[in-house]
Design a protein around this nucleic acid. Structure first.
Lengths: 339, 339
DNA sequence: ACGTGAAATGCAAGCGATTGCATAAACGGA
DNA sequence: TCCGTTTATGCAATCGCTTGCATTTCACGT
């Protein structure tokens, strides 16, 4: 039988109001009483019943973490699990529990967002690398449930009044360009992918390139699928072919580490020297890149910073603050390693 | 303002009891009434308030997913995120939400398990690759909250009366041995790691080896840290050295794919031919292994099966069933690829 | 000694559902 | 026509906690 407020009240010979106030550190209760009651509660192993408290208070102490539908796609995977760890680390300190959910049901297609909101199962929402349709957003707003986008480029059309915390991908693209520019003249291959964040990286790359006085015609662009295989297959093939046709690439910027690592491996086996013949720069800074041979030069996404900012903002909002919405782009860092 | 039972009742001109019964498909309500009320509820966008329902029913429609503390260690990472996806897929169908938590607070060291249980925030618990101390288990049992271990070898001493669903690592070790045995005579290197599951794999390997009439003296054992680097460093070095000293290994069984891939890469660069000179077998079947060059032969952990079994068992328990506890070992599968 | 304000505590009404029990309506049989 | 069932519905208590307001107690100033 779980211990309730009433039990503690009986044991302490006071009313449940007093117990409630004591355990909630209300200033109405004198210290002495509070101490006694807290001791009794501790001895009895009392915990608040979350449902009861939720019902009474209108909040649950839980937030939802919405991951993209393609969460389990490997390339994104290795990325999001560390994101999740960071998030839980921050929120745990604030005593907030984390519910994970897909944006919509895999089977019925119903919106999980709306379901959670309508059931008042959560107080807030952290949306990772995902958009949210109008209906979902309206639902959240109508219910007054705060939400923060994280690791998602703000698209002004969709939710200009929401908070966004994202890597500054334009800056990231510039960093990659700088890494390649330093290796001197020559053509480079830019391996992008589908998505606004990739466009932003390309944009940064192009502009830094132009600012260095280099011609855009030196840049070839292809669009990959973010996989290791695309790197070891298509990308490496192009590099090798270009070399044998006498117009070698001096650098490759793969917009995900996985593609970069694939490229690296295939080039290694094909006998193409990295970085002396061609430099390779990745993006993300996944763990694996450090241990790879040669160690991958890459643009580190400031995951920890992003999650901390997003979580703190969400906590602020949960606390009732209504600050002006923020579209914060956090500068990534160039991890200059062997390639 | 959220819509409540009372609102629907007023609109329909009936009592809240009738509405509650209608929406819960009670047989007490005639079909016609039920339909009308359900329609109204739908029109009004009604949802049950989870807290109220939880308080009244004594259950929350949420389970906790407990991941190990070392969750974010990369080697485990790529593994657990797909686990999580599978779990959510299964539970979503049963309308059960998933709360993720570390077994204990990173900062205070308090048991999150106990906290969740005492607060009655969850109805059940799925424990991934983790032990649970006596106190936690006692707490769960006292509260009558069912829990299932998954992807964890049952240790009879700890919770013989709990359910376990785990890869049959002994069988996995045997599969690896078979893959290596087929390449004929010669010494092999067994790269293990710390943990009972690794011991089980070794055990299986040894016994299959012996059954094939081969001598145990052909097997060298080392203990790695499951990382790519350990493979590309220590393991590859040993293989190359052994070769140059005239007693080459004919096979390597790395008990995690990451170590195997590291090994593969370093051997590739060192010019050791795989599989003609030496075979390499991994364990886990991570996505990356398929795309690697050459594609890694490995033992696939039946993650999907494991999670489905565990989830279904938990759902059963949540439903009130009290079947005999099960220690189920699921047979892994040999993924015979290039190495 | 008494009125007054502050401090401590309790009462009881919610919060939004569920559900045992009571009641009302409808129906069928004699 | 009347009674006993069956069927449909409602009343009100309950789940555990919070909190506005009322009440009690006490110290203090006059």
């Amino acid at each position: 039988m779980p211990v309730t407020l009433k039990d503690i009240a009986r044991l302490a010979g006071v009313s449940t109001s007093t117990v409630s106030r004591s355990l909630n550190d209300s200033p109405l209760i004198p210290d002495e009483t509070r101490r006694v009651i807290q001791r009794i509660a501790r001895e009895q192993g009392f915990s608040f019943n979350a449902s009861a408290r939720g019902l009474s208070l209108g909040q649950t102490g839980t937030i939802a973490l919405i991951f993209p539908d393609y969460f389990e796609r490997f390339s994104i995977n290795l990325f999001f699990s560390s994101l999740q760890s960071h998030i839980r680390n921050v929120l745990e300190r604030a005593q907030v529990d984390v519910l994970v959910a897909f944006p919509r049901s895999r089977t019925t297609g119903e919106s999980n967002v709306q379901k959670l909101v309508m059931a008042r199962k959560i107080d807030g929402m952290l949306v990772v690398n995902n958009e949210m349709d109008r209906a979902d957003q309206d639902c959240l707003r109508a219910a007054g449930i705060p939400f923060v986008f994280l690791h998602k480029h703000p698209e002004d059309t969709l939710a200009p009044d929401a908070d966004y915390f994202c890597t500054d991908h334009v800056a990231g693209g510039r960093l990659a360009a700088q890494a390649l520019l330093s290796s001197g003249a020559g053509r480079v291959l830019l391996v992008s992918a589908i998505g606004e964040e990739f466009d932003a990286r390309s944009e940064g790359f192009f502009s830094a390139w132009a600012e260095a006085g280099r011609s855009k015609t030196d840049i070839d662009v292809v669009f990959g699928d973010c996989s290791f295989e695309y790197g070891s297959g298509e990308v490496a093939r192009r590099v090798v072919q270009a070399r044998s046709f006498g117009s070698p690439y001096r650098g490759v910027f793969c917009q995900t580490d996985l593609m970069a690592l694939g490229t690296l491996q295939a080039l290694g086996l094909a006998g193409v020297e990295v970085p002396s013949e061609v430099r390779v720069v990745g993006y993300d800074d996944i763990e694996l890149g450090k241990g790879f041979m040669p160690a991958l030069t890459t643009v580190r996404q400031p995951l920890q910073e992003i999650t901390e900012l997003a979580c703190h903002r969400l906590l602020e909002l949960l606390g009732g603050a209504r600050p002006a919405p923020e579209h914060r782009l956090i500068r990534p860092e160039l991890m200059l390693r062997a390639t």
